[in-house]
Design a protein around this nucleic acid. Structure first.
Lengths: 340, 340
DNA sequence: TTTAGCAGTCGATTAGTTTGAGTGCTAACA
DNA sequence: TGTTAGCACTCAAACTAATCGACTGCTAAA
C-alpha cells in the first residue's frame, strides 16, 4: 500500500504528464502540486515510486513519466472525475435536440459529438441484438429473380439482405409467403433461430414451397447472430494533435488498426465482465495500437444494453474528462430512446 | 505546341517524379529515358520547359519537378495507360467472386479493393437515384407510435426512415394504407414526387386518413432527392506511405478533409460534364487537400449511372495505373449487377 | 526525516564544415 | 544552327563539435 504522500505525488505526476506530455520533474511537482515540501524530498519519493514500477525515466537527466501500472492505479484509485462545464453540457444537449430520424444517423452523431468534445477518436458500437424479438419479416420483390428481406426487431431493422428467389414464386406467392413467415418468426428471439431443424419440423407439407425461402431467412438471422455488431469511428485524425503521434510510423499504426474492423472489434469488445465503464490501458489489451488506451461506456436503453460508446487515444489521455462525457451521453441516449 | 522532344522529356520528368518523388535531373533523364542525347541538351530543353511553366526548380542546384500544368498535360496527352497485370486482374476478380448479398457491403468491398490494388485512399459515391422508379412502398409498424418506411426502387432500397404514426392507424389500417400507398407511388419516378399538391388532388376523400402518412413519405423522397448520395472511403491511412505526407500538418489536412463529408462530396462531385473518367489535379478543385489529386470513374449499370468510384492521393500519383484499375472495376460491377 | 548544495549526465540546440548532386554558361564542334 | 564537353558555381543535406541547461543522485547538515 502506498503512503498518502506517495499517492499524492503519483497523482500529480500522472495529471501533469496527461497535460504536458513531457517528463515531470521534482521541481515542477513542488511548484504546482505539493508546495509544502522541497524538490529533494519529492525526488526521494519519485525514486521510490520508480523502483516500485510506477514511474520510468527516459534518461538520467530527465523527469519521470508514468508507467502503464501507474495509469492503471490512476484510473482505479487516484483520479477525481471532472464534471462537465455548463458550456459543454449545452453543446452536447444541442446536438441531441436535432434528433435524427434514423438509427444510423444517430450513431454517427453520437460518434461525432464524443470526438468533438473530447478531442479524441471516438468509437461507437451498435449491437445487432440477438436477444431481441422479431417483430416482422417482410420479403419485398425486387425483380423476377431476387428479393429483399426486411427483418424488424424491437430495436433495429435489418435490411439489404438480398436473396435469390425460388423461381416458382409469383407476386401472389410472395404475399402468402409473407403471411406465413410472420406466423413462423414473429415473437421469437433472434438467438432462438439457431437450429433450422427445430422449427423445420413444424412446417406442414403445404408449405414445403417456402422451405427454400425459409432457409435463407434463417441464414440471414444466423449471420446477424454472429457478426452481431456494427462499429463506427469518428475523428480519426484527432490523434495527430498529440505530439507522441507526430511520428509517422506510430500514426500509421494507429490509423491502420482503426481501419481494420477486426482489430477494432477486438479492442472494443466489452462483453466480458459487466462494468458500465471499461478502461483498457496500453498493452493490457491485445492488438491495441502502440501507446494507446481506450475508454468505453455501455449504452443502455430501458436497462437493456444496445451498444457502447467510447474513445481511443494516447495512454496519457484525459480519463477524468472522458468518463464524465461518456456518462452524460449515455444518460441522454437512454432518455431519448426510452421516450419513443 | 511542344516539340516532339520536349514532350518526350516532359513525359520522362513526370514519369520519373511519380516514381521517385524526387526532383529529376538532366543526367537521370538521359540515362533512363533519352539515351540518344547528352545531359547538356536535355538541360537546355528543361530550361525552356521551365520558362513555359511546366517545371519548377526547388532551388538552383536541384533537379526539376513537374508543375500542376505539367500534370494536366501529362494526363491529357502524354501518359500511356498501363494495362493491369494478370496477377492484379486475378486478385480483383477473386474479390468480386465472393459476391456480397447487400449493397452496402458491395460498396465497402469495392472501396477496399481499389485502395488495396492502387495503394491510395479510395472514395466510392453511391447515387440514391432520383431518376429511379419506385417499385414498392411498405410501412412497417415498429410500435404504437412509430413506423419504418421502406421504399424500394429499381436499384436501391431506402430504409431506416422512421416516422411518427398518426395515432388513429391500427394494424389493419396500416395494411390498407400499404395497399393504397403502392397504388399511388408505384411506377412513378422518385424525382416526379416533388410537388405534393399535384398528386394530392388525386386523393379521394376516402383516403383523407392517409394524408398525414402520405405527406411524410413525400418528405422522405424529397430528402433523398436532395442529399442524394452516399460516400464511403477506404484506406485513408495509405497517404502516410508517401513521403510528401510525412509532414504531420499535411497529413492532418488530408485526413480532416477526408472526414468532412461536405468537402469530400465537393471534391468527388462529378455531376458537371459527362466524362467517364474525371481527373482533378491539385488546386484545380476547390477544397482539395494540399498537394492532392483525384481520379474518379463513373459506375454504370445497364447504361445508367449509379455512382462513381475513385481515389485521392498525392499529385504525383500513378494515374496510368489508376485509370486502368478503375476501368476494369467499373466493367466488373456493370457485368455483375446487370446480370441480376 | 527533510533539505540545501553540488557534481554529474545527457538530450537538445546551435554553429560551423564538408560533400556532392545538379545547374547555367561558354566555347568548340558537327 | 543545334549539340555537347567542360567548368565554375550554388545550395541542401549530412556530419561534427561545442555549448547549454534541465534534471537527477548523493552527501552532509539541520
Amino acid at each position: 500500500m502506498l503512503s498518502d504522500r506517495k499517492r499524492k505525488i503519483l497523482k500529480a505526476v500522472v495529471d501533469d504528464y496527461i497535460e504536458s506530455a513531457e517528463p515531470v520533474s521534482s521541481k515542477n511537482i513542488c511548484d504546482k502540486y505539493l508546495t509544502d515540501c522541497s524538490p529533494a524530498t519529492v525526488r526521494n519519493e519519485l525514486s521510490a515510486l520508480e523502483s516500485m514500477g510506477y514511474l520510468v525515466q527516459p534518461h538520467v537527466s530527465a523527469g519521470r513519466i508514468p508507467s502503464q501500472k501507474a495509469f492503471r492505479m490512476y484510473v482505479d484509485e487516484l483520479m477525481t472525475v471532472k464534471p462537465l462545464s455548463n458550456e459543454e453540457i449545452e453543446v452536447i444537449d444541442k446536438y441531441f435536440q436535432q434528433r435524427a430520424g434514423n438509427v444510423e444517423e444517430l450513431v454517427m452523431n453520437v460518434a461525432k459529438i464524443i470526438s468533438d468534445i473530447t478531442n479524441y477518436t471516438s468509437v461507437v458500437v451498435k449491437n445487432k441484438g440477438e436477444e431481441e424479438y422479431i417483430r416482422r419479416v417482410t420479403v419485398v420483390e425486387l425483380n423476377e429473380k431476387s428479393a429483399l428481406v426486411v427483418i424488424v426487431t424491437d430495436n433495429s431493422v435489418l435490411k439489404d439482405s438480398i436473396i435469390d428467389l425460388p423461381i416458382d414464386l409469383d407476386e401472389n406467392g410472395i404475399k402468402t409467403a409473407n403471411n406465413w413467415l410472420n406466423r413462423v418468426f414473429c415473437g421469437k428471439k433472434v438467438s432462438e433461430i439457431s437450429n433450422i431443424d427445430v422449427i423445420m419440423s413444424d412446417i406442414s407439407i403445404d408449405f414445403a414451397l417456402y422451405r427454400e425461402l425459409y432457409k435463407k431467412i434463417v441464414e440471414i438471422l444466423k449471420k446477424c447472430n454472429k457478426g452481431g455488431q456494427e462499429i463506427t469511428t469518428s475523428g480519426s485524425s484527432k490523434i495527430l494533435d498529440y505530439p507522441e503521434y507526430n511520428d509517422i510510423d506510430k500514426a500509421k499504426d494507429f490509423l491502420t488498426k482503426l481501419e481494420t474492423k477486426s482489430d477494432l472489434m477486438e479492442i472494443f469488445d466489452t462483453s466480458k465482465g459487466d462494468f458500465e465503464m471499461v478502461i483498457k490501458i496500453g498493452q493490457e489489451q491485445n492488438n491495441m495500437p502502440e501507446g494507446c488506451s481506450m475508454v468505453s461506456a455501455k449504452i443502455n436503453v430501458k436497462d437493456k444494453m444496445v451498444g457502447s460508446a467510447g474513445v481511443i487515444g494516447p495512454i496519457r489521455m484525459d480519463y477524468k474528462k472522458i468518463v464524465s462525457v461518456l456518462e452524460h451521453i449515455g444518460q441522454l441516449i437512454d432518455k431519448m430512446l426510452s421516450d419513443q
